[in-house]
Amino acid sequence: MSTLSLDNVTLRYAADHGSSPPVLAAIDLTLEHGEFVVVIGRSGSGKTSLLSLAAGFVAPSSGRIAIDGKPVSGPGSDRAVVFQDDALYPWLTALDNVAFPMRLRGVPTAERLEKARQLLVRVGLPDAADRHVWELSGGMRQRVGIARALASDPTFLLMDEPLGALDALTRGRMQGFILDVWQTSGVGALLITHSIEEALLLATRVIVLAPNPGRIVSEIRTTFGRDHLAGAPLSEIRSSAAFRRLHDELTALIHAEDEGIAA
């Protein structure tokens, strides 16, 4: 059981030292193995910065980021990242993209291609292996991106609005897919989104961020994702009373922040 933890983390960008509020202030967050934490907040609340910190792309201005107590000094293959704009390499085929993390580790060609093929089957794209990235639809690209992330056998899967650029129909299907991947891989998932519905459907825990400075204002535990994995269809969950109530609650929370700024 691994734990990714952020202890009292503050992030300031060097340019605005002192003058403006920090991007993120006093963030305390833990992500356990097997958990699905969704971070939601209005734009400017530092969602993506939070993910960059967890991934190790940026270092905190103060505070501590650690995995099982060991401080994180940079990006590492234990924390795979899925990007909003897929970040697949256009000069590689879908298969080679998935095999890329293994190539970096020096896994022999035949072995890594075989494993990449299995991963493509697992994300439902057995026929996409030799296709170029630009020949794939947005939803397929994100599936390849997730397969590539899984190829590094991560302990944590960090996803930055992975469904943000997709149309509503594809989005709905991909939410079920992400839950499935999360369950079968047993990773600790951290997902950034601005969709309340998505947050409630996927998360075991929803973290609400508020801007100026970016800070955690609320934390809600949900079980809708697990209900879906246990067999409840997404449409039924979405129309259930419990879901509607939490949806309203979350909307009010984020809306309240708006009023707070206007005042």
Binding site: P75, G76, F83, F100, L104, R148, S152
Partner: peptide, 9 residues
């Protein structure tokens, strides 16, 4: 693209 590669070690 660069960050993805860094994240994969």
């Amino acid at each position: 693209h660069v960050n993805a590669a860094r994240a994969f070690g």
